[in-house]
Amino acid sequence: MTTKLDKTGPVGTPSPAPENIKAIPVRHYGRWISAVVTIALLVTLVYAFAKGDVNWAAIPDYFFDQEVLKGVRNTIWITILSMVVGVALGVVLAVMRLSKNPVTSSIAWGYIWFFRGTPVYVQLLVWFNLGLVFHYINIMPIYKDEWSDFMTPFLAALLGLGLNEAAYMAEICRAGIQSVDEGQTEAAQALGMSHTKTLRRVVLPQAMRVIVPPTGNEFINMLKTTSLVIAVQYWDLLQATSEVGQNSGATAEMLFLAAAWYLILTSVLSVGQYYLERYYARGTTRNLPATPLQRIRVSLLSGRNRQGMGA
């Protein structure tokens, strides 16, 4: 006969309370070392530019120069128009790419293959120098003129940027359209809606939540890509600052000025992209994340409440 011993002690004796766990935080020495190295490199970089032969006073002096502001306006204008051409043509190419007609889908595939496979800088130069191949443009009976007068720097920049962007937007729109469940299309067609109406009223509105984020990135990227239109002699921000830099002798300073303007413009576009993405995310999330302004208001109200409770 065996007897089982109760390890907890006699019956009725309460079990001892568990000891408190002493949590010892892990020391991340690598983080501190990398932070120190990063700060040291940043300080060295700032010190090098501060001690360098840079006329920093020239930047605020020419920041609102008339030629520079004209370049800013032209940069914004060519960016907007190129994106309009790219988005409009990209939607058409995406629909053609998804078409069951092999000829239509092949043409769209060939367009995307060509314009994505060649640099945009080369495309700009090709459009600008087509006058060496075609001396006249003759669209009877609508238009007839010399190619050099027809292909202005503005038109060459618009075609080079817009047609290239259409190839990328076509793939973005195609991915957005394919992200919509096929049951939505089948339900719309069961209600008697045509293919065009189904695409316009059912598919595209739902695809926008997938299309908008990369389109915003493409818009910002287009703003920076406009710096390449200097190759076709279009007066943009980079062309303006380069011209002012040559005339004033502050070449490097004007490049810093151009970089500052690009940062300002891209920051504004980034804010717009954030609110646009938030707008189209309403149908996918129950509670939208608070905007920066809302977070600031909450922080101010909580601070006031704490002060009132302390008083």
Rank of each mutant, 00 (worst) to 15 (best):
I137K: 04
S194N: 12
T13E: 15
A260R: 02
V85K: 12
A250M: 06
I220V: 13
L293F: 15
G183Y: 07
V229K: 04
Q206N: 06
T225Y: 07
Y111G: 10
C173S: 13
R200V: 03
F134P: 03
V210P: 10
F114E: 13
L238I: 08
R282F: 01
V232I: 11
A281H: 00
A190P: 05
G308P: 00
E182I: 08
G283P: 01
F114S: 08
S15Q: 13
G110V: 09
A156S: 15
G303C: 08
G52M: 07
Q123A: 01
I80A: 01
Y143W: 06
I24M: 14
Q246S: 10
A207R: 14
V103P: 08
Q206W: 10
V36N: 06
L98G: 05
T13G: 08
I107S: 02
V133K: 03
F219M: 12
T196M: 11
G308T: 10
L130K: 11
P141G: 03
M193W: 10
Q307I: 09
V68D: 11
P16S: 00
S194V: 06
G245V: 01
H135G: 12
G117M: 07
E182K: 15
I142C: 09
A259T: 11
W261G: 00
A281C: 07
Q239I: 02
F114P: 05
I177S: 13
K224F: 09
S105W: 03
I21P: 04
Q273R: 10
G310M: 12
L93I: 02
T185N: 14
I142D: 06
M96C: 10
T152M: 06
L41T: 14
L276Q: 11
T13F: 12
L98T: 02
K197H: 12
T291V: 02
W56Y: 13
F256K: 00
I76Y: 11
K197Y: 14
L161Q: 01
G71F: 00
N221C: 05
V244T: 12
R286L: 11
W127L: 00
S270C: 08
N217A: 09
A170D: 07
P16K: 11
E186I: 00
N305K: 15
F115H: 08
A188P: 09
K224R: 12
F256N: 00
N101D: 08
T291D: 01
T284E: 13
G272R: 01
V103H: 09
L130D: 09
Y62W: 02
P205G: 01
I59S: 09
S242K: 15
A188C: 03
Q184F: 14
Q66T: 06
G272T: 05
M254L: 05
L257F: 03
I296F: 05
T198M: 11
G192F: 01
F154Y: 14
L89T: 05
V91K: 07
T75Y: 03
D6M: 03
D65S: 06
L263K: 04
L265F: 01
V229N: 05
A57C: 02
Y143S: 06
T75L: 04
N55I: 03
A258L: 04
G176I: 00
F115K: 02
V95Q: 10
K144L: 07
W127G: 00
M309S: 14
L93P: 05
S105E: 06
